[in-house]
Simulated scan of single mutants.
Amino acid sequence: MANQVEQGLTEEMLPLLQKERYVTIATVDFEKGIPNVNAISWVYAPTLQKIRFAIDNRSRILENIKANEGVVMSLIANGSTYSIAGLARIVLEKMEGVPLKLALIELEVNEVRDVMFYGAKMMTEPSYEKTYDAEAAAKLDRQVMEALKKG
């Protein structure tokens, strides 16, 4: 996909964003007007044009989206790095069926760019480990992902 601009996710990207995955979200800080970047993992793309994600409803991301709905999600996959841009909207400030106070955000994708620098390839994708009770983490992850799928 190098040097191309797509109007939505590609067929290869869709399954990558239908499970818990490390991505970053860039928003515009509502007070300072400068970029604000956060790492998240609860993402689900129901279509090539939409990505849903869950965040703590006390997160600064919510206030940022209320002030400026422009969002960029960064995805490292398939040997490259992708910038997924679009407009975000807050679907729910408190998701149902989840024990934490999480907000559901939906990103309407309007541009996907391969932003990997020339002549390079990502050799491994980011990985992470939950640092709290593994059983509790797995249960929470299932609950959040089910809520994201329902929208």
Rank of each mutant, 00 (worst) to 15 (best):
A2Y: 06
P126N: 06
E96I: 04
Q18A: 12
R60S: 07
E6M: 14
S74R: 07
M116W: 00
E129N: 07
L100S: 05
V109Q: 04
I84S: 00
E108P: 02
A138T: 09
K101R: 12
L62K: 14
K19Q: 14
T27Q: 07
K19F: 02
N110T: 11
E31T: 14
M1L: 12
R58S: 08
L14G: 04
M116F: 01
D133M: 10
F117E: 00
Y44E: 12
E31H: 15
G8P: 04
K121L: 06
Y22A: 14
L140M: 03
A103K: 06
L100P: 00
S127Q: 11
I65G: 09
R58A: 08
A103V: 05
V112K: 01
T81V: 10
K150Q: 11
A85S: 12
P46H: 11
Y22L: 15
Q49D: 13
A77T: 00
K139A: 04
E11V: 13
L48W: 09
E96G: 06
Q4K: 15
I55T: 15
P126A: 05
F30D: 07
Q143V: 04
L140H: 06
P15H: 08
R142N: 04
D114W: 01
A136H: 10
S80A: 15
V23R: 01
E135K: 14
V115W: 02
L14T: 09
I61G: 02
E63P: 07
Y22K: 14
V72C: 09
R142W: 03
K121V: 04
K149S: 07
G86E: 08
A45M: 09
R113E: 02
N3R: 14
M145R: 03
M95H: 02
